[in-house]
Design a protein around this nucleic acid. Sequence first.
DNA 1: CCTCGAATGTACTCTGCAGTACAAAGCTGA
DNA 2: TCAGCTTTGTACTGCAGAGTACATTCGAGG
Lengths: 208, 208
Amino acid sequence: MRTEPSTAKGRATVQRVLDAACDLFARQGIRATTLDQVGSRSGTGRGQLYLYFAGKSDLVTAVVTQQVQHLLDAQQPLLESMSTAADVRAWCAAAEQWHATDDRARCPIGSLVHELGEHDDAARTALADGFGRWRSALADALRRVRDRGELAAGLDPEHAAAGLLAAYQGGVLLAGATGDIAPLRLALATFEATALAEQDGRPDGRSR
Amino acid sequence: MRTEPSTAKGRATVQRVLDAACDLFARQGIRATTLDQVGSRSGTGRGQLYLYFAGKSDLVTAVVTQQVQHLLDAQQPLLESMSTAADVRAWCAAAEQWHATDDRARCPIGSLVHELGEHDDAARTALADGFGRWRSALADALRRVRDRGELAAGLDPEHAAAGLLAAYQGGVLLAGATGDIAPLRLALATFEATALAEQDGRPDGRSR
DNA sequence: CCTCGAATGTACTCTGCAGTACAAAGCTGA
DNA sequence: TCAGCTTTGTACTGCAGAGTACATTCGAGG
């Protein structure tokens, strides 16, 4: 951020720019998005961009930071209330749902990994930090699941969190490549079938 | 491919171009690679590129196709001989090894998913097909593992294949984002710990 | 040795986009 | 109402890189 806006109007403009860029980056990628597009979609010209941001790199950093925060904010309520195997299944079902209507599935932050330029170090750090916090929140949730005895025996919640996050990211990647969410569904189903303890009344999903 | 080379020299040139582009795309991404780089690294000017390929899109398609083939060729011997839980563990260990020295881990084909342009439909198809064949080969291998009773009880080899591939892709993605292969290791360890049947002498890796 | 098509190297054009300059308009407080 | 800012819009510059034209060299067959 080059210049902090000093008026409410300026702050609103910055926010519109960030939102527009967030949306465009998530949908069509960073490199494919031009500053003209950001300017016109946010209803401002390109002039403002250079008033508030030092350049594209700077904008990218700000957007990545905001995108990470958005995602974590959206995840927090889901993960904070997660404490049973059924909750984990519900999270997985929700994850499929997020991408059910996408023609090309993209994780709002996962898809950015290979789009950052060589010199976007700040954005890289923000992204890596975001993944770390996401995994940590998942681990907290899975620890509660384990404490109720609903995680597969002997499975470390930290490992399981990494496994679940990777299953989601990998599933979304494959879904985006094939244009079909089946890979995501299968990857999450495999996690559910193997990492969660057998349930009483409910089949645990193996071989379904 | 615009013009098929009619001499051995021409074919050699095409191959050099493809190899150079393959390497550059895998290391620095498609959009970050210029045709100048491809030309100079392959020891030919940019002139030849337009003699043999209609343009960058066409080159990308050819490279993706070759890259997919390379990967499948490299995987085939590993997967064909896979029939025990120990073989699966060995494959996972090898997968970690491939990226042990990378500063930014990248799957040679997974990293391309978000780099194809809007109009690289042929390349998209080749990529999706590659993932399908990879998953299928993994499923064949895991079916043999199941037939020996070394897959977790009731786990469908097809599902497990999707789960393993997603764990690898997601693990590599996270490793690339954080600059540390730990996420890949944990993701694969979770798969090993949950999807493989308990082994006699060997600890199965849970909570390690 | 000559010829002709294939292969190679170079120099140019054209376009898209990042970045810059600056003029105009809008607030806000005195 | 005026002064001095912040904000906004537009027009220009510069450059990187895709694509093209064309001159030169190579090499196999007569």
